[in-house]
């Protein structure tokens, strides 16, 4: 089950800078830890995050193991028109998880 939490204002005026926050449940396993049996726990992290606004990428990020578990990012974008913001997280294996939010722009 994908567990994501995004916060986007429901409404905005055109041209307004809006604050966006995005978080996903993920252990961000560094590859540097050992399990109880003394064996290394293999690395598994979210490597890439991107936010599209009506199909156009407005923000992206590349993550390394130094990002906290359940990675959190806050950023901004300019509200241009009513539409959908989509969020994509891609892990080491190329698995993609998504979330979306609607915004009404007046």
């Amino acid at each position: 089950m994908s567990r994501t939490l995004v916060s986007v204002p429901k409404t905005a005026r055109a041209g307004e800078v809006i604050d966006i926050r995005a978080m996903i449940a993920h252990p961000m396993e560094t590859g540097y830890r050992m399990g109880p049996n003394g064996q290394a726990i293999p690395r598994k992290i979210i490597r890439h995050f991107a936010c599209d606004y009506d199909g156009e990428e407005v923000f992206s990020a590349e993550f390394h193991p130094a990002m906290s578990a359940n990675p959190f990012v806050a950023f901004s974008t300019v509200a241009t028109k009513t539409g959908t913001l989509t969020f994509r997280w891609t892990d080491d294996d190329g698995k993609v998880e998504t979330a979306s939010a609607e915004i009404a722009v007046s």
């Binding site: 567990r3 939490l5 916060s7 978080m23 996903i24 578990a69 359940n70 959190f72 806050a74």
Partner: peptide, 15 residues
């Protein structure tokens, strides 16, 4: 709530 990671589990619990 937008930054509290515990809310990820609350959301899962809700599902």
């Amino acid at each position: 709530d937008g930054s509290n990671p515990g809310m990820l589990w609350v959301l899962q619990g809700g599902s």
